[in-house]
């Protein structure tokens, strides 16, 4: 009588969020395939799926997800009562770069100017190398926000540091001030952009030439009570995201208390002595899940 358990849905959270990314493109692609015979001469568009494959889709088959991003003025206010933090477990990172890809996909970035970098770190000659995923640290004492002459980059009450690219004058003082090289500049006209979408600092889309951009912690997702794309994209659960006020962080499959995690694994913040008070914590690369392997030749960081 009893049904067999579905193992996939055991990982509650995972099943609810990951396939959104894969599912949309994959699903659209398949639907498009089935109606291909009917209208052969329909206009086609190429899409980059989350796993980096190029799919060709009939334009009509693309049902656009209705999305209403928050306008720039409203994006200056944080989500009340929250303070977002990220925890990166360096022991679990093996430079899979899924976070980079999903970030690039959702922010419509070309691979030459990603928001996330995975750096090969070696603290000194005798210590072991490790991979360090690096986003914007969303500092509580942000050097970039201090120096912005027009308030185009700002700190929100929920801990996020965002950029309003409709206000940015492109002086790049924030880039010079950021000690973590978190920011990228649109040196030329940005490519592959969905220009129809209304601009919001919460999506960072569309980009504009001559303005600064960076990792935004995906506030559009946070408003829907979903974690940023990179968190769910990590196949090894190396990235945790959560609310510091609620003292809980999740990597998509498990939810832990932030204080316990930091206590048990001796979490630290990168270059604490700079006084920037980052909101990204790192767990040292001890008891690693993977042996360190050098990046393949020609792979960008």
């Amino acid at each position: 009588m009893a049904n067999k358990k579905n193992k996939h849905s055991r990982r509650q959270f995972f099943s609810k969020t990951v396939p959104v990314a894969i599912g949309t493109i994959g699903g659209v692609g398949l639907v498009a395939q089935s109606c291909q015979q009917a209208n052969n001469d329909e206009e086609k568009i190429s899409l980059l799926s989350a796993d980096g494959q190029l799919v060709e889709v009939n334009k009509s088959a693309l049902t656009k997800v209705p999305y209403k991003p928050v306008p720039p003025d409203e994006a200056r206010k944080g989500i009340p009562g929250k303070h977002f933090v990220m925890v990166v477990d360096l022991a679990r990172c093996r430079n899979a770069r899924k976070c980079v890809k999903s970030c690039d996909h959702h922010h419509q970035l070309t691979p030459d100017r990603p928001f996330i970098k995975v750096l090969r770190m070696q603290d000194n000659k005798t210590s072991a190398p490790y991979w360090m995923p690096k986003k914007c640290f969303h500092c509580d004492n942000p050097p970039c926000v201090k120096v912005c002459p027009v308030g185009a980059t700002y700190k929100r009450s929920d801990g996020l540091v965002l950029i309003d690219n409709e206000r940015c004058i492109g002086c790049r003082f924030c880039m010079a001030a950021c000690p973590y090289s978190a920011r990228v500049f649109n040196w030329g006209e940005p490519k592959h952009q969905d220009g129809d979408r209304p601009y919001s600092p919460e999506t960072s889309i569309p980009s504009q030439v001559g303005t600064v951009e960076k990792c935004d912690f995906c506030p559009d997702m946070l408003r829907q009570n979903k974690v940023p794309h990179c968190i769910t994209a990590c196949p090894n659960g190396a990235l945790y995201f959560g609310d510091r006020n609620a003292d809980s962080v999740t990597n998509g499959s498990e939810t832990v208390r932030l204080s316990t995690l930091l206590k048990d694994k001796a979490g630290y913040r990168y270059h604490e002595e700079l006084g920037t008070e980052p909101n990204v914590y790192y767990l040292p690369p001890v008891d690693r899940s993977f042996p360190f392997k050098e990046a393949p030749e020609g792979q960008p960081s």
Binding site: P149, N186, V212
Partner: peptide, 25 residues
């Protein structure tokens, strides 16, 4: 400095949104 600015068309933002905490101001 003007040549260095990415968005010269937004020069007036300095007057509209200027923050005197910034050394540029």
């Amino acid at each position: 400095i003007l040549l260095c600015m990415g968005r010269l068309d937004r020069l007036h933002h300095l007057a509209l949104f200027g923050r005197i905490q910034s050394p540029i101001i």
